[in-house]
Amino acid sequence: MDPNLRREIILEHYQNPKNRGLVQEDGYLRENTYNDSCIDNLDIMMKIEDDVIKDIRFDGEACAISTSATSIMIETLLGKTVDEAKEIIHNYENMIEEKDYQKEILGELIVYNETYKQPNR
């Protein structure tokens, strides 16, 4: 992937993340992901109806990579079934950990296919 395009996509999602801001509504699963080594601290909430992901929101503090990845991941997962979502996340994790993965189902998330080159990330 062209590095300039990659950077543009990541930066756009970092500076203008989609689905940012939590809502006070029932029917959501809520999770805090706090990483004590890299100090990212994100709250995520997700609404699942009839096994389909209807909505995901997030908020918190994190670096450019982490914030943008959350934004892109949410966009990728919206409308998917729980099993499809698990498959995407599994492939995404494989990509980050330099294992085999299916490129096709990751969509825009492949902008992170070289993140492993920054191990202190």
């Binding site: 890299c38 990212d40 994190a62 670096c63 450019a64 202190n120």
Partner: peptide
């Protein structure tokens, strides 16, 4: 800029 991004930049 998130502090960790700043530290990576300086690194």
């Amino acid at each position: 800029v998130f502090s960790q991004d700043a530290a990576l930049y300086l690194n």
